[in-house]
Amino acid sequence: MNIKELVIISGKGGTGKTSLTAALAKLSGHCVLADCDVDAADLHLVTSPQREKEEPFMAGWEAVIDSQKCVGCGICQNLCRYGAVLNSTQTDTKSTVKFVIEKAFCEGCGVCVWGCPAEAIELKSKLSGQWFQSRTPYGPMIHARLGIASENSGKLVSQVRFLAKEIAQAEQYDLIITDGPPGIGCPVIASITGASHLLVVTEPTLSGAHDLERVLKLAAHFQLSVSVCINKWDLNPEQTGLIENQALNHKAKLAGRIPYDPVFSEAQVKGISVSEMDSIPVKEAVDHIWSHLKSYL
């Protein structure tokens, strides 16, 4: 079966990616959901998921210094380029200054292990987060949580997308809807490579326009087909027009406009998607976006 994947991104944060993802899932009625905003995952708050599975996400390494073996020479501290080797507050009976690794800064490169003359440092594999498989009214959902102060968000994103494809194949779903992270960096690149179609959600502000420009260039870099929709368009109709022209200049399609409406936050409070709320203008706007997207999926 040919599985299509729609990825929703925005460049700028807080433009309504997650709310729109949930609404599109509701309209599709039958899809796999993937929450790739693993830094700050929120899709589970508006899709009423029942959790079926919870697994650790092991990725990368972290150095650990054995304080019994540490001779306090400081070679590791000189070699470490991440500033992750700190002076320990504890000293031994001979008042030797010992060293400790600050986990939040360690990237697990192993240079300290290589340099240590006392063989006091080893690399341990690192628990970087968790991933979950849940069941929503529309189908299965894969989501994740990166550990506090962890790295490897790109790898966790790839893992979430891999699992979403796996379950789509196993359960015969032909559509995956992916809620992407903000920005244009590592986790965004991991979210969009190989997607069938991108939907960029923006807003009619100078920041929205500026960030859209960068995200469209990124999409062009990966040769992906893109549609753009503008949330809260009526806050600044003039800017909305400019952004739509900007999108067309980049050969993106226009998916539609969504009006500024408090139902976006009200739906979150109720834990449901905006398309289940009784705002006719928002419903019509989201319906329009969905029928536009269907022709690319």
């Binding site: 807080g14 830094d39 700050a40 990166l146 962890s150 968000s153 992270p181 903000p182």
Partner: peptide, 14 residues
């Protein structure tokens, strides 16, 4: 700072 709670955010608040 950038949004989120992982490497870029930590690099900025540190």
């Amino acid at each position: 700072c950038p949004p989120g709670t992982t490497c870029p955010m930590i690099a900025a608040v540190e």
